[in-house]
Design a protein around this nucleic acid. Structure first.
Length: 288
DNA sequence: TGTCCATGATCAA
DNA sequence: TGATCCTGGACAT
């Protein structure tokens, strides 16, 4: 256990804010510089060779997808559940473990090592357009149109908790943000999407933007309001690898910070869902 | 040393 | 809905 920020940084949390942070770091380290590209693991070799020696023109994120542009060739990365990207200054570190793709600048060296991604592939600009067209609005992007998400929510009988995990509704939202967002807005996760009011979605969207921007700045998902922070409540800070201060995510069985009800957990569409039955009462699905 | 689980998503049925 | 993929950390044995 690392305490007080000593030791390795917390593991990346691949919700949307993580990818935006990574895009910024690629930009800072590599943009405009000639790079060397390799695939030590051997699963991206041919594609990697086409990149080798080129300059990085642009790095950007859309939802949980990362796009690195080298002229007309674009590397698309999706970290999935297990993917990680580690950056190193100085000499490239020895290759240990399964590195799918390594990108390095000339001296002074800067290296990015990608492991365990769900996707690492070379796309054309047209293919990138097709991919992003399938994504909903990303709260971290200035071009995002929350109405596109709303149109899917308002006509759906699917539980709002499941809709929030749908990348066509809000690209970049993952299991932590969805649980915390529903908590902050006191919404029963099983409420049908069509029962959400327009004003509620507006408020949730604005909140998501704020929470995720904080995530980009800090690399953490912190969702508790000032009055519920550890210092304000006189409680110990959260010290697990996930790092952030949250209301319900992975707090099953513990008392709600606000009403003391036991935080609940259930499986929904194959993912763990956390919520407070005391605070989140708006509005249970009819017939239950 | 082995098993399970995770901040994700796709595919087949 | 269930199986599957990826890696690594936590935990059990």
């Amino acid at each position: 256990m690392f305490i007080g920020g000593i030791g390795r940084p917390a593991a990346p949390m691949p919700e949307g804010h993580t990818l935006h942070r990574l895009a910024a770091e690629f930009t800072e380290r590599f943009r405009g510089l000639p790079t060397r590209s390799s695939s030590p693991q051997g699963r991206f070799v041919a594609e990697s060779l086409l990149i080798d020696g080129r300059r990085l023109d642009d790095a950007e994120a859309h939802g949980k997808h990362l796009f690195l542009t080298f002229g007309e060739r674009i590397v698309h990365v999706h970290l999935g559940l297990a993917g990680k990207i580690g950056f190193t200054d100085g000499d490239p570190p020895p290759v240990i473990g399964a590195i799918r793709w390594r990108l390095t600048t000339e001296a002074p060296h800067s290296t990015a090592d990608l492991r365990g991604p769900a996707a690492c592939e070379l796309l054309t600009p047209g293919e990138v357009d097709a991919l992003t067209a399938r994504l909903g609005p990303d709260p971290l992007r200035p071009d995002a149109d929350p109405d596109a998400g709303w149109r899917r929510i308002t006509r759906s009988r699917t539980p709002i908790a499941a809709l929030l995990m749908d990348q066509r509704v809000a690209a970049g939202v993952g299991n932590i943000y969805r649980a915390e967002l529903l908590y902050r807005h006191r919404i029963d996760p099983m409420m049908e999407g069509r029962l959400l009011k327009p004003g509620e979605w507006q408020a949730m969207w604005a909140d998501l933007q704020q929470l995720m921007r904080h995530g980009v700045q800090t690399g953490r998902i912190d969702t508790v309001r000032p009055e519920h922070e550890p210092e304000a409540m006189g409680r110990p800070p959260r010290v697990d690898a996930h790092g952030g201060e949250v209301y319900v995510y992975r707090r099953a069985g513990q008392p709600c910070l606000v009403c003391r009800s036991k935080v609940r957990i259930a499986e929904l569409a194959g993912r763990n869902l956390f919520w407070c039955p005391g605070c989140q009462r708006r509005t249970r699905r009819r017939g239950r």
